[in-house]
Design a binder for these strands. Sequence first.
DNA 1: CATCCGAAATGACCGGTGGTCATTTCGCGA
DNA 2: TCGCGAAATGACCACCGGTCATTTCGGATG
Lengths: 223, 223
Amino acid sequence: MTDDARGEPRRAGRPLESVLSRARITTAALALITIEGYGGFTMSSLARTLQVAPSALYNHVSSKHEVLQWLEDHVMTMVDVSGFGSEPWDVAVRRWAWSYRDVFARHAPLVPLVAVLPVTGAPETLRMYETIAAGLAGAGVPVESLIPAIVAVESFIFGSALDANAPADIFDTGDLADSSPTFTAAVLGQDRSTGERPADVAFRFGLEALLAAVAATRRGPDA
Amino acid sequence: MTDDARGEPRRAGRPLESVLSRARITTAALALITIEGYGGFTMSSLARTLQVAPSALYNHVSSKHEVLQWLEDHVMTMVDVSGFGSEPWDVAVRRWAWSYRDVFARHAPLVPLVAVLPVTGAPETLRMYETIAAGLAGAGVPVESLIPAIVAVESFIFGSALDANAPADIFDTGDLADSSPTFTAAVLGQDRSTGERPADVAFRFGLEALLAAVAATRRGPDA
DNA sequence: CATCCGAAATGACCGGTGGTCATTTCGCGA
DNA sequence: TCGCGAAATGACCACCGGTCATTTCGGATG
């Protein structure tokens, strides 16, 4: 064959003006989900939003799962990493973690995906990881502790994001209260003096615990 | 009347007295999932396993979601709480937490359900909570700290169960390595001297951090 | 200008899903 | 003996994600 861009990165022929693209699909998906929720998010509804036949989507996307992966990577840009570089490391981590949890509490169905999604093909997610890793490394966390620390905090965040969607009466023991006296007492004995949601209290407790453990791994700026 | 001569002589005459029941459905569901995985678990396949028409299930169950909730409660009995009452509190919690994570790593699709499932109607789950609460209370954890502590540890376990299903190369930065030097170095710099899986290293790190925080809330037996 | 390439959109179509419903099948108690 | 009612049935539904042969049409080529 000649060099006329058969498989060239330069598009040989660009006949139709890209009605569909990763960015457009992702944006439309996010808009649709924000309005309708994940329950109403189907390939048909997404196509309808884009003024396109459902099957046209499959010229740009290999599966619905892939759309959700794109969406996940986009959602990750909403996580607040602004503390890194401008604040003490622990303040930055707190701001990041709370924001991270809040964002994915609003997108809980994405949690099982992001937990197993390779960073390849998720550039925004990787960008966030780089920011966190650099921030922690700069704070003196040794290289070999970086990944375990990040994964542990992240796992806690994912679980907490799911938990944040639990109904308020999740621990109502109802007519089984007799068979679980200690637990029932614990539910009743929660500190309700601050107006904080129970899920937030638990999140603070766990986050501070992890923060302390990360702090304990730190080495001074010199060797 | 065309239904006999089906190999099974006692096919007919079974309509009364519990051909289907919560226990039977749950057991069959677990067996089916153990063999086929969650991908192959449908109401049709479940009904086939039970030698019953799919619609017959709906006389005993209101939705597939409910079947999964029953299953979740049953799966909870596989979590090892044997340490409570026979071992020091921290040993008991460690055994429980590792077992809890392992069980739900094998049943990851149930994690988003159990995270928001009210304990009412999940008696086995409640039994476990009671055991944990009593164990911690007996160790001196004050009542008002019980729920936050349990929820925090549980959230961490759920997130870690999802994480345990991540592919080994999840952090492979590939051709984006240049743009994420610190993170890439961290991935390469993981301590591989022990043969432990990265997910296990992270889980240990987080669990010990939470354990230390729980220990810090303890009060002496008096007061 | 006439031609043709090929990426992208189309719409019919597929197998399978969870779920509903009118109907039938009996064991059992009156 | 007979009818009640729990339980199983099978046809049926709307909708899902996904496939495929076909059509459209902008733009590069000569």
